[in-house]
Amino acid sequence: MKRFADLQVLAGPAVLVVVAALLGTTVSVSTQGYFTDALVKVAIVVALYVFVGNSGVLSFGHISFVAVGAWTAGVLSVPASEKPAIMPNLAHFLRDRTTGNLSSLALAALVGGVCALIVALPLMRLSGLAAGIATFAVLEITHNLLRYEEKIGPGLNTFSSVPETTGLRQAALGALFVVVVAFAYSRSRFGRLLRATREDDAAARAVGASVYRQRLIAFTISGALCGLAGGLYVHLLPLNTETVYLDLTFITLAMLVVGGATSLWGAVVGALAVSAIDSGLAVAENGTSFLGWHIDLPAGTRVIVVGALMATVLILRPSGLTGGREVKLWPR
């Protein structure tokens, strides 16, 4: 019975992802893009949850690993014939190598994880505001380096010519994979120890949990998942450094907090709910008819409504839509 209750925690988010993907197959190709984008956002937010949710420490730096993953997968999968045109100053070992879709995603996860580990080794000694600002500093440094370092990517240019392999199916499978890893981690010994440090630092230390080591493990796993999500993202649409910077940091953190940062269920619900409103408004900005009403909002209302909505949810329900609890389909 315990096993069954555990499985609900996985089944809830997984079913939600599958339902979103299935809904995506019923709409037109242009609308389908919104569903694919939402599923990639689910992957990013769940990756963020692995660290932020389980540790209770806010990180502004995770989009760095999304960016690094996107750069890895992007640089490696642009066809060799097109590389000189987009990235004329690329380093030799990157210029001559091209990989397929799956291996580029795996490498994106690997590079994201390694970068996260390198960052975490010194940074996880910090806590509180110092940790928050230090992760922000990581985001700034990554953004600055990717923007101007043309040996490892397109620099200021947009990543064009990356094969657009992230359709609805790949996005859904990617999001499912991230959900399963996040579930496995949070049920593991490490996840439980990290949550213990979140709830009561002193008590967790007293039973022998090392806060530093547990945060390090979570940060690395979460960085690898962010890298994978970045790989999915770059295969979805042509990115540049501004796509994976402050706006994405804001929207993903807001999704996590709006859903309920301390549960996997909250991460998935938050990502899908905010995406749904955001895309709905984006459609309305382009002009659409809804139940016989013609709606045509001025461009820019989308961000305003989403921002206001998030502030409202945070004020009225600070623990998020789900209250930070896992899903219970059959309460006992």
Binding site: L58, F250, L253, A254, A299, I304, G307, A308, P318
Partner: peptide, 28 residues
């Protein structure tokens, strides 16, 4: 005022939301 006494993380993300809200109002 409504946020008083909430956790610092919630307050910080809320001011993040306000920042982006004001920025997009200016953009519009």
């Amino acid at each position: 005022r409504p946020l008083r006494g909430h956790s610092p993380a919630v307050m910080l993300v809320a001011t993040f939301a306000v920042a982006f809200l004001m920025q997009s109002v200016a953009l519009l």
